[in-house]
Design a protein around this nucleic acid. Structure first.
Length: 388
DNA sequence: TCTGGGGTCCTAGGACCC
DNA sequence: TCTGGGGTCCTAGGACCC
């Protein structure tokens, strides 16, 4: 049987949602994220803004220079999540299997559904119409015999695109896309390829696997040769192996004051602990990330015998990690905290946690609420503010 | 170009065990 | 004493994606 996969990818998603919610923004250069006066990058921008050279992940200062009259709005993640849930629900009406790949993108498996649903291109048109009617947004859909081809095809005719990679034309299709634009080939891999004189998928196909492995190692060479032949390198493995939860903060100004770092870690400890518990997960591994004023980044982690059970415990562990990793010679630009290798065993412990730590929990929540309301005047439990 | 925040996966090296 | 080989777990860093 012929496999049929769709990749459905929303066009300029965050920006389109903003334009839909605020009709004044329609047809204008709109930039989401990258607010003036803060360190940051552009999260998304409208096609009108792209004409000025603005693109996502661009430093906001650059975006302001390129597009001084653009409309800059903050990210409203909760709203995008809402729209995302609606879109995913629409997809599930048309495909028996929908795998959400990110907030604005999903893979649909339509293998063997043509008698019931009709030809793939027709189904795709219906999905596009449905999304447009119910949300006012446009989605681009790519169709291929595997998810990798579908993913590339969804990008091929953006925005509002619909493209099917025909059977027998897979390699021709791959070759029509510049090597550096292929999904999974980033800056670093491309520059390594270039150094080996490789600038096309055709060249990758011409090398034996032994030679490729010698240059790039087993993992990378398997990946490269799969995509050069139009095969799926396994871009979405069904089974999650590891789970992590993290939060990080980039300061508006680099910080050398230990007290400020303590306060920040206290807040982060609460955030990640509540998120972990809310999901019903538990974790024994806590990781601290710091980025110094020279942008050098490092991480350190600790694994305990038992899972973390309170924000307080996480906070204390995070302070120990900071002591180990930071020599105080340089100021800190970013600090982050996260759980690694979380699993679902926490589900049974949640009830217990609620009973034992209810009081402490309440205090911690109250502190957190105050902190989020009074950003510049943080409220910290006095006991936690001992001198280091 | 002065570079966010949230993830996933891979790799190399060390510790430790048999 | 100069030393194998494999397995597993952990750590730190790096690449990539949205």
């Amino acid at each position: 049987m012929q496999n049929v996969f769709f990749c459905a990818d929303m066009d300029a998603f965050f920006a389109s949602v903003e334009q839909h919610d605020n009709p004044d923004y329609k047809g204008k250069p709109l930039i989401v994220g990258g607010m003036e006066g803060h360190r940051g990058v552009v999260s998304a921008c409208s096609y009108e803004a792209r004409k000025f050279g603005v693109h996502s992940a661009m430093p906001s200062s650059t975006a302001h220079k390129l597009c001084p009259n653009g409309i800059f709005v903050p990210v409203r993640m909760a709203r995008y999540k809402e729209v995302s849930d609606h879109i995913m629900e629409i997809f599930s009406r048309f495909a028996p299997e929908v795998i959400q790949n990110s907030i604005d993108e999903a893979f649909l498996d339509l293998t063997g559904t043509d008698r019931l649903m009709g030809p793939p291109v027709e189904v795709a048109s219906k999905i596009k119409a449905c999304v447009k009617e119910e949300t006012g947004l446009t989605v681009s859909i790519g169709i291929g015999e595997n998810r990798y081809l579908a993913k590339l095809a969804s990008d091929y005719r953006k925005p509002d695109g619909l493209y099917q990679v025909e059977k027998g034309k897979e390699i021709e299709f791959i070759d029509s896309i510049p090597l550096k634009k292929l999904w999974g080939i980033g800056k670093s891999t491309y520059s390594r390829l270039e150094k080996s004189g490789i600038t096309s998928a055709a060249q990758i196909r011409s090398f034996s696997s032994t030679i490729l492995e010698g240059i790039f190692g087993k993992g990378a060479s398997d990946f490269l040769s799969a995509i050069a032949w139009g095969k799926d390198p396994g871009i979405c493995s069904m089974e999650h192996k590891s789970r992590s939860i993290s939060n990080e903060i980039t300061f508006d100004q680099d910080v050398g004051d230990y007290a400020v770092l303590r306060e920040t870690l206290l807040g982060l400890s609460h955030q990640i602990t509540f998120r972990l518990l809310k999901k019903g997960w538990s974790s024994k591994t806590l990781a601290l990330k710091i980025r110094l004023d020279n942008f050098s980044t490092s991480t350190i982690q600790v694994t305990q015998d038992n899972a973390f059970t309170s924000a307080e415990e996480v906070f204390q562990a995070s302070l120990a990690l900071l002591q180990k990793k930071w020599d105080r010679k340089r100021n800190i630009r970013l600090i982050g905290l996260g759980f690694q290798n979380a699993d679902e065993t926490g589900k049974t412990q949640l009830q217990l946690f609620d009973d034992i730590h209810e009081k402490q929990n309440k205090v911690e929540k109250a502190v957190l609420n105050l902190n989020s309301r009074f950003q510049n005047n943080q409220v910290i439990k006095a006991a936690l503010l001992k001198k280091p």
